[in-house]
C-alpha cells in the first residue's frame, strides 16, 4: 500500500524509502547587490514546509544533479491580521500559512544567473519615444539653467 505516512522506525528496520516524493521546490531570484546579496555559489529556494535540509540536499543532488555542498533552512511565519478595534486583548483574526526557505551552497566555482524574464521591457525603454522626449527636455532645462546661472531666476524675457 502506498502511503504518505512516515512509519515508526526502530533499529533493525529497513531504510525509509520514498518512491513518489510529493515535495516541490521553487528557485527564487536573489539580489545581486546590497545587504541581501548572496555569494555566487549560493542558490535561494522556497521549499515544501515539511522538507528537512537533508531532504533538500538529496532532492537537488539526485533529481537535478547539482553540486550541493551545504543546505541551511529558515522558516518564515505567515502574516497575522490583528483586530485593530480590540486594543486591550488584540486577538488574532487571520493568519496566512508559514513558508520555508533554503539557502543551498554549491561547490566552489558554481555560478548561475537568474535569467531575465522581461528582455523586451529594456529594449522598449531604450527606444521609447517618450523616454527620448524626456531626455531632450531634461537637457534643454539643464542648458537654460546653466545660461541663466547669474540671473537669479529672472527669466529670459528681460535683458539679453
Amino acid at each position: 500500500m502506498t502511503t504518505r505516512l512516515y512509519r515508526a522506525w526502530q533499529p533493525g528496520n529497513p531504510q525509509n524509502r520514498v518512491f513518489l516524493p510529493n515535495f516541490w521546490i521553487k528557485l527564487l531570484n536573489r539580489a545581486s547587490k546590497g545587504p541581501k546579496a548572496l555569494p555566487e555559489n549560493v542558490l535561494y529556494f522556497e521549499v515544501h514546509p515539511q522538507m528537512t535540509r537533508h531532504d533538500v540536499r538529496e532532492y537537488l543532488t539526485k533529481i537535478y544533479e547539482l553540486p550541493v555542498r551545504d543546505v541551511n533552512t529558515r522558516v518564515k511565519m505567515g502574516k497575522i491580521e490583528w483586530d485593530s478595534v480590540d486594543t486591550k486583548t488584540r486577538r488574532a483574526l487571520w493568519k496566512e500559512d508559514d513558508k520555508k526557505f533554503a539557502y543551498v551552497t554549491m561547490c566552489r566555482g558554481f555560478k548561475h544567473d537568474f535569467p531575465n524574464l522581461f528582455p523586451d521591457d529594456e529594449i522598449e525603454k531604450e527606444t521609447s519615444q517618450v523616454e527620448r522626449h524626456k531626455e531632450l527636455m531634461r537637457n534643454l532645462e539643464r542648458n537654460a539653467k546653466a545660461a541663466s546661472r547669474d540671473r537669479n531666476d529672472v527669466g529670459t524675457w528681460f535683458g539679453l
Binding site: M1, T2, R7, Q10, G12, N13, P14, Q15, R17, F19
Partner: peptide
C-alpha cells in the same frame, strides 16, 4: 507492489523487515 517493482528495477535488495 509498486514499491517492490521499482526496488527490483533499481537493484535495491532489502532483506530487513519491519519490526
Amino acid at each position: 507492489t509498486f514499491e517492490e517493482d521499482i526496488s527490483k528495477e533499481q537493484g535495491i535488495d532489502e532483506r530487513r523487515t519491519l519490526k
